[in-house]
Design a binder for these strands. Sequence first.
DNA 1: GGACTTAGTACGTGGCACGTACTAATTTAG
DNA 2: CTAAATTAGTACGTGCCACGTACTAAGTCC
Lengths: 133, 133
Amino acid sequence: MDLVDALGQLSFEVQGALAEIAGKHDLSLVQTRLLGVLRDREPTMQELGRHLGLDKSSVTGLVLRAQRRGLVIRTASELDRRSAHVIITEDGLRLASAVADEFARWIAANVAAVLAPAEQRELTRLVKKVLSS
Amino acid sequence: MDLVDALGQLSFEVQGALAEIAGKHDLSLVQTRLLGVLRDREPTMQELGRHLGLDKSSVTGLVLRAQRRGLVIRTASELDRRSAHVIITEDGLRLASAVADEFARWIAANVAAVLAPAEQRELTRLVKKVLSS
DNA sequence: GGACTTAGTACGTGGCACGTACTAATTTAG
DNA sequence: CTAAATTAGTACGTGCCACGTACTAAGTCC
């Protein structure tokens, strides 16, 4: 197996685990990403679309469904009355943290557990180097 | 950034690239995986579901859409007349190869290009170690 | 003030995934 | 050897996701 296969498989593995964890909390992968983005931002719909790589028309429904479940709210912007800021609620924050914690535990059990500490550091370093490009 | 964030982000990055490449060939990520599985197998619908981690009722539609586009065919099993084997067509093979090649080029440009040869080997080794667990 | 641009929604289409309910073929029990 | 249970697959309804197009309302530019 070469680098291409290794990274391809790894990405499916990690995304699969994340999807499963999210599913246990009745969240889709996209909803989870949404909440993740909103943990440290209060973006407009447009900015949200940029962060998630989605069209603005896709964001409408995504936020609508999250709002129905009480995970986010929309507030009118005061600077520009056309735009709305999306803000995560307490419930949303709790869910996001729960998923994040469980994901961290999955990494610990499935990655960290099979690598020596030095290997973990090296893997982190290499991946970061790739991501920063 | 720690190991958890690094692997999370990497998986989104890789899957995003793969989805984009697949999209250029009018394939979804799932269709691409389907064709990938079929490159070296002629599974029944059930086996296909197991490989992809999907319910059998999900596989029906997936294969149906692929069949409409001439990417796969279904043939009746001779051992068990209840089951059908899914087989990739020449067109399907061509598409699968095109996506795989382009993905390999993406890895070369975005991963291999920023790592020294020894680092690439080390990354591959570490990822394989994780996957084999 | 009128033309243009921008933020967001509405709606229709298509893919994806599931659960449930069904048919047909096969296997198992009695 | 039939009757019951299991298995392979499809049909259908639901909901999520993503997009393009068309629209409204608000802001900007002349």
